[in-house]
Simulated scan of single mutants.
Amino acid sequence: MKINKILNNNAVVVKEDDQEKIVMGAGIAFQKSKNDVISQSKIEKIFVMSEGNKKFQELLKTLPEDVIELAEEIISYAEGFLKVPLSNHIHISLTDHISFAIERLKQGFRIQNKLITEIKTLYAQEFSIGLWAIDLIEKRTGVAIPEDEAAHIALHIHTAKLGASTMENTMKHTTMINEMIGVLEEESGSTVDPEGISHQRMVTHLHFALNRIETGEPFHDMDPDMLELIQTKYEGAFVLSQKMAQFIKDEYEVSFPASEVGYIALHIQRVLERT
């Protein structure tokens, strides 16, 4: 395998069987020139050149090598932790994101993620990878990275899992849940404990409910007598559930069936009892 173009010290472009590929490995291009042969022992990753990988090629030429190495180390750790391959696009999105985040922090900007509470609950594994990642970035760069950035990294990792929703859908659902919790707090006059098990169960329930609506998967029907009992016994919680459902319908044109409003009311009741 011969070098066709050197992108940086750790990445080169090769041409094999009339197909261009990006080949990466620590020091793979050190003291190398075009047409030199690459040592197989140094090859860590190979990407077939596509439109997306052409953008990756540009990033490899323009971004600092230490940032690229950080991103690749985080991606490798994530794949090992989750035991699943991640889509090739994460090599572009995460590398670009980390570079931009470091630059913003160096310039004194504050990074915030208003969805951090929901992300911690919905994507716990990915968030733990994000925490590992920000610790690594801090050690390598000396830049203090807030926990909010771990949530951003978690979303990139989640959406890179094969079969996962797009970043747009993931953000939309997480935002909808965050806003529903906001309606609950505003209408009840109570602050929900984000670390409470009842809150976490409700967030998870809302997440699966929104997924069912999007995919057209049927909901579990609730016995009419049970629904009536909830309306009577937990009237306050049921009214709050209706307000949350109405908010989502008004803002996103997403409708919860009556039985689902009942199930959400049960979760609200548990949250309120522990607030």
Score class of each variant (00 low, 15 high):
175 T>I: 05
143 V>W: 10
227 L>N: 04
161 K>T: 15
158 H>S: 01
159 T>Q: 09
171 M>N: 03
194 P>R: 04
231 Q>D: 11
228 E>H: 13
100 F>H: 07
148 D>S: 14
194 P>D: 02
149 E>A: 10
162 L>W: 05
179 E>C: 11
156 H>Q: 13
197 I>E: 07
199 H>N: 11
132 W>M: 11
102 I>K: 04
204 T>D: 09
165 S>M: 09
128 S>V: 12
211 N>I: 09
188 S>W: 04
178 N>Q: 12
134 I>L: 08
215 T>R: 12
114 K>I: 10
218 P>Y: 12
205 H>C: 00
116 I>T: 12
165 S>I: 13
190 S>H: 15
111 I>K: 04
151 A>F: 07
112 Q>K: 13
207 H>N: 15
127 F>G: 02
147 E>A: 15
139 K>H: 08
108 G>S: 12
129 I>L: 02
209 A>I: 10
230 I>C: 10
110 R>Y: 07
154 A>E: 07
211 N>Y: 14
164 A>C: 07
144 A>I: 14
183 V>I: 15
106 K>Q: 04
233 K>V: 15
188 S>R: 05
208 F>L: 01
228 E>F: 11
228 E>K: 15
165 S>N: 09
196 G>L: 13
212 R>N: 08
125 Q>G: 08
221 D>V: 13
180 M>N: 09
217 E>I: 12
121 T>K: 01
216 G>F: 04
139 K>Q: 09
106 K>C: 00
127 F>T: 01
232 T>W: 14
151 A>C: 02
121 T>P: 02
214 E>L: 05
198 S>Y: 14
152 H>A: 01
219 F>R: 02
101 A>H: 01
214 E>K: 11
208 F>K: 12
197 I>L: 06
179 E>K: 15
120 K>I: 00
165 S>T: 14
163 G>K: 13
174 T>R: 08
194 P>G: 05
103 E>T: 08
219 F>D: 07
181 I>F: 13
226 M>D: 09
115 L>Y: 13
115 L>T: 03
200 Q>K: 11
132 W>C: 10
210 L>E: 02
173 H>A: 01
107 Q>T: 10
209 A>G: 02
110 R>S: 05
141 T>C: 12
218 P>L: 05
193 D>W: 11
158 H>N: 05
161 K>R: 13
125 Q>C: 01
156 H>A: 12
161 K>M: 06
214 E>W: 03
145 I>D: 00
232 T>C: 09
219 F>H: 02
187 E>D: 12
